[in-house]
């Protein structure tokens, strides 16, 4: 079985995000970048499927050379191969554009796959779009936000989280699955894995050379502005006996906030 996992470089979730208003982008200087946490779960799932049977795991990332450490991380965890789909552009926040690039790479260069794994969203663009879009463009079944996955030969079942319930979905391979927290607990890379990943070659595919027509790669979303969220004013803080504090909370909610 051939499993492809799509991974993205994102700012660490503990980072404070600063904005360059002129350039309408986030200021990357001083940020530390990590593999998108949901993508890490997707890699772990691929590795578990590999360990349970026979599979080759290949990680793909779209981005500049700065995404190579993310691919090395995937290799160090245990992925067999990694490929960089290279492009030196700023984040477009347009999921369709990203999906088209993945689909073009799959159609023209990497057409041998059984399972395509993603994170349910990147913690950054927060789009939750690319897995579904790739599924549609390739005409494949999709199950997003998956917390349990069972593959049996050419078919599978996935459990997906919705509001207050879980949906069980059956599908046949090839299929698109996106991972949610709870699917597994990603492993730490081993020293041996890190050393092996260091030596491993990562092929680079230039996005420009994937054979796109002129404007197919133009983002269809126009970014008008980017700003910080309106700051929240700190309110009143009290330190009183528990009984009094409890009364004051309820009073505040009812009288001042008029929320109860």
């Amino acid at each position: 079985m051939n499993i492809f996992v799509f991974v993205k470089k994102v700012p660490d979730t503990e980072s404070k995000i600063r904005i360059d208003h002129e350039a309408k982008c986030i200021i990357e200087e001083g940020l530390s970048f990590v593999i998108n946490p949901y993508d890490e779960i997707a890699i772990e799932e691929a590795l578990r499927l590999k360990e349970a049977g026979e599979a080759t795991v290949t990680a793909f990332s779209l981005g500049s050379d700065e995404s190579i450490p993310i691919l090395k991380k995937a290799l160090a965890m245990g992925a067999d191969e990694a490929v960089l789909l290279k492009e030196d552009l700023a984040e477009s926040y347009d999921g369709l554009r990203t999906a088209r690039i993945f689909v073009q790479a799959l159609k023209t260069k990497y057409s041998d796959y059984n399972l395509l794994l993603f994170g349910k969203q990147s913690v950054g663009a927060d789009n939750s779009q690319v897995p579904s879009m790739v599924a549609e463009l390739l005409g494949l079944p999709q199950v997003n936000v998956v917390t349990k996955l069972e593959i049996d030969g050419n078919t599978g079942s996935a459990y997906r989280e919705i509001e207050g319930a879980v949906e069980k979905v059956s599908f046949s391979l090839p299929a698109i699955i996106s991972a949610q927290k709870g699917l597994n607990e990603p492993r730490y890379e081993t020293l041996k894995g890190i050393m092996a990943a260091k030596r491993k070659d990562i092929p680079v595919v230039e996005v420009q050379e994937l054979g796109f027509d002129g404007d197919e790669l133009t983002s269809q979303l126009e970014l008008i502005k980017m700003e910080s969220p309106p700051p929240r004013e700190a309110g009143k803080v009290i330190e009183e006996d528990p009984d009094v504090a409890a009364k004051k909370i309820v009073e505040y909610l009812r009288e001042e906030a008029k929320a109860l």
Partner: peptide, 28 residues
């Protein structure tokens, strides 16, 4: 959390929750 809270109580949640529950019950 106090930097974003509209109303903050410095205290032990285990002591605040029981009377809070009673106050909310009364109100509701």
């Amino acid at each position: 959390i106090f930097r974003v809270a509209d109303f903050g109580v410095i205290g032990d949640l285990f002591q605040v929750i029981p009377p809070l529950k009673e106050e909310l019950k009364k109100l509701l």
